[in-house]
Design a protein around this nucleic acid. Structure first.
Lengths: 126, 126
DNA sequence: CTGCTACATCGTATTTCGACGATAAACGGA
DNA sequence: TCCGTTTATCGTCGAAATACGATGTAGCAG
């Protein structure tokens, strides 16, 4: 589901799944971890702690959240644990973003607002 | 910045900006609001309250968060306020997702994990 | 002026998050 | 076996998010 052409069915949106992935990305430290995983050719162990500048237990907690969301997977390489990315869970969020950006274009020629009373032309901005 | 070809520079990642947008999307009610805005040809007023099934004050608070993030803008159409989407702020998040998904392909031929001790072949999964 | 409608804000209770130090667990090596 | 390394978990604290009812505000209709 949502595999191909995910840009045209707003009813297929799984709000819970999207919110869950977004929540995993909703903290700068976790985004930094993702960015750090992107910056390396393979996986990383505890270098992450030095990178984000937080205590080891705090980083471990962020990694737990990322693993719980499925965005990051940990492969055991004793005594280290090797973290890597799993882009699959990003699909629902990516689909929503694609729909919003796609609609922006088709929205350009919509001259008015829909209301129960009909179509009202645009005026002020807040 | 990040205008074109945002798939190849992990150092350009603005963790704060990405986390801020993700935080706006990190609640099912807010995702539902975005989805509802997608499902209408123009803008909407208070129909949102009936859609998400929460109290009016709670929905108003979620709309405040969405407006604060820039994802949603409100146009005054007295007595209503007409909400619509602003896809621009999604760009940094979209870029990060693109980088993760793009890296997945190039990652397929990485046979090992990077560590300070060198390259260790993959073994177990957790 | 008096309501009515649509939305925002306030006050508040409950829950969740984020950070840390301390400690536990798992393993490899001396 | 004891030790060092690496990661996970626990306990706790303050801060922030969430939800609600009550109230405030701004225009319109009568």
């Amino acid at each position: 589901m949502l595999d191909r052409d995910p840009h045209h069915d707003p009813r297929a949106i799984d709000a819970e799944a999207i919110a869950a992935v977004a929540k995993a990305l909703a903290h700068p430290a976790r985004v930094k971890i993702i960015a750090f995983l992107l910056s390396r050719p393979g996986c990383i162990g505890g270098d992450i702690v030095g990178e984000v500048g937080l205590a080891q237990s705090t980083v471990s907690e962020h990694l737990r959240i990322l693993k719980a969301s499925g965005l990051v997977v940990g492969t055991i390489e004793r005594p280290r644990i090797c973290y890597s990315l799993n882009p699959k869970v990003l699909a629902p969020l990516h689909a929503l973003i694609g729909m919003v950006e796609a609609r922006d274009a088709s929205q350009a020629d919509a001259p008015c607002c829909y209301t129960p009373q009909g179509c009202i032309p645009k005026e002020n901005n807040q």
